[in-house]
Design a protein around this nucleic acid. Structure first.
Lengths: 333, 333
DNA sequence: ATCGGAGAAGAAACCGCTTTCACGCGGCAT
DNA sequence: ATGCCGCGTGAAAGCGGTTTCTTCTCCGAT
């Protein structure tokens, strides 16, 4: 008996078909040009032994694993799940698999975890909105085939795919403005996250064009909890509209306001951001700026695929959110 | 110059510190027992070269990748995302990463895709509610360290984690019964999925105990679309309550019924199954049987971890859903 | 008849690490 | 002094493939 009940190796197939391992390898990879009869013998032997080349060994020899890493700050967030889903599907079509990493919103772990994840695969799709530009720069070459999501970097030259938060938040603000709202709360996201900064920038821009508006910043967060926590302060304020950092936060706000007996959109309008599938089904249905997350995932793979095959990658992509007006916003009373 | 700008290998470190690769390996793995000065030299050299052992090469030599596969029928489903999230977190704590696979609800692809996924890692957490028992049996040894989710198998002896759909659907039916409903529609899931069969079994049981109830089966599906599509038929029927296959379907039903002007829960009560986070925020908030998906993910990892370390795995686990009564169900008028 | 060249297939090096096995050396018992 | 044992370390054989390089054979051309 051979090795302890392991699966058959290329050597077994070689022996069985009376050729060398080299030939087996060539046949298995369609690189064989010799006598067709030999190829058939090899294939037959492989079949009989139910032989499958070891992915691991191939990876080592070829120097690629056919898998990519996807690092996000919170796998629990539907927005990232949407990206993961489409990224994974797109990659799968090209024979690549996705290895997931969740940095659990911990900025200090993000770097090391990403490095570790990257080392297990061929490339990294990184969503690290809180990572400092300097850390990103420092780690960029360790990440190398790298595609960035929701942030770009001037220091490192890698493809980036982003949602245009600046414009998106502007759309929402304008929508509220058109409804007559003049005192608006912005419920902030994670303190120094890139996407929060972008939203702030969009709001500043909006403010410049509309000096009759009072924009009020309130500390928030990225999840439903943050929304729940912020709702009382909103109820207490004299704002007639709220822009939440994202849909999750908005959902939290919606829920807590209902509990507090605050009428939405009667007393206060609420808008989210992201366009997660469920935003359409909240009570009341949530007005939001819908970001094309599946397109983002697909396009991320297109860029990544190009990087991996050495083609030059399409440039950065800035995806425009679409304003989705629903029942949670209404004309100011 | 050495190999084309590759990262340093164990040989580089060995040369630089004047020892053999074997010694470097031992030092790097804490298996070194000799002169501490030697160890220090090695560590210094590794540090200077910024050496990291190749995960790939280690995997090949050690025969394990420290990663597991997670195959689901639809990554877009929040229920699976919840499991993925907790599974990934639990595995990460033990240094394992998760490779995701999405069979896109295609029963014919499920098998081959799972095999492929399995070959890239050390084990498989499989959620394949549509796979036939015979196919599962046939492939079981290829999957080997295997943990099943939402189905058990008598033919193969592997740990399984399931939601108790039988009891869960019973809870929901009883809830509707208590509210006075006597004509209830069950909106079916994917035709021959295990979880659909379990729900049917639960309903049969319920029917036996309540012969004054008319249970009516209607074809459905697993996603929001299925719910949207089924709503008209529900509106047209004389049922006063609907049990949807899962929350997604229920959300679809809710939405379409609202559009059709059918009052929920006034004219008809609607209940879902799964307890996805958003069920609490629909309009009206969805009554559901909430399944502990994160516990399921964590426990799946516990079983898997045991299998991987050779300990004997804790037995099967049948997790009980909790009835979550919300606004979408009410007393029959 | 001889040489050259193309084409088929094998030998061996290699990918980068782990681990068994062998070696050399110093210390202790005889 | 001699033999033995144990210890620290290196050499080398894997892990399971891929690929370069080489050899051998058979063919046609001169």
């Amino acid at each position: 008996m051979a090795r302890r009940s392991m699966s058959p190796t290329i050597v077994d197939v070689a022996r069985r078909s009376g050729v060398s391992p080299a030939t087996v390898s060539r046949v298995m990879n369609g690189k064989f040009l010799g006598d067709p009869a030999v190829a058939d013998r090899v294939r037959a032997a492989a079949q009989e032994l139910d032989y499958r080349p070891s992915t691991l060994a191939r990876s080592l020899a070829l120097g690629r694993t056919s898998s990519i890493g996807f690092m996000v700050p919170d796998l629990g967030n539907p927005a990232f799940q949407a990206v993961l889903t489409s990224l994974s599907k797109a990659a799968a079509r090209d024979g690549y698999r996705v290895l997931v990493g969740d940095s659990a919103e911990s900025p200090s772990e993000e770097g090391p975890l990403s490095v570790e994840l990257r080392r297990r695969c061929d490339a990294l799709v990184l969503c690290a909105p809180r990572m400092s530009e300097s850390e990103l720069t420092a780690l960029a070459d360790q990440f190398d085939p790298l595609v960035l999501i929701n942030r770009r970097s001037d220091a490192v030259a890698v493809p980036s795919l982003s949602i245009d938060y600046v414009t998106g938040i502007g759309l929402l603000a304008a929508h509220l403005y058109d409804l007559g709202h003049r005192t608006i709360v912005y419920l902030e996201g994670p303190e120094d996250s890139v996407s929060n900064r972008h939203r702030l920038r969009g709001l500043e821009q909006f403010q410049r064009d509309h000096d009759d508006v009072t924009l009020q910043r309130m500390p928030g967060g990225a999840g439903i909890d943050a929304g729940l926590a912020a709702a009382p302060a909103i109820a207490a304020s004299d704002a007639t509209a709220v822009l939440a950092y994202n849909d999750l936060v908005a959902i939290g706000v919606l829920h807590k306001l209902a509990e507090l007996g605050v009428d939405v959109p009667g007393r206060v309008s609420v808008a989210g951001f992201d366009g997660i599938p469920f935003a359409a089904y909240t009570s009341p249905a949530l007005t939001t700026a819908s970001a094309p997350h599946d397109e983002l995932g697909r396009e991320a793979w297109r860029r990544m695929s190009a990087l991996l095959t050495g083609a030059d990658a399409p440039g950065d992509l800035l995806l425009e959110p679409r304003l989705e007006v629903r029942a949670s916003t209404a004309a100011r009373r």
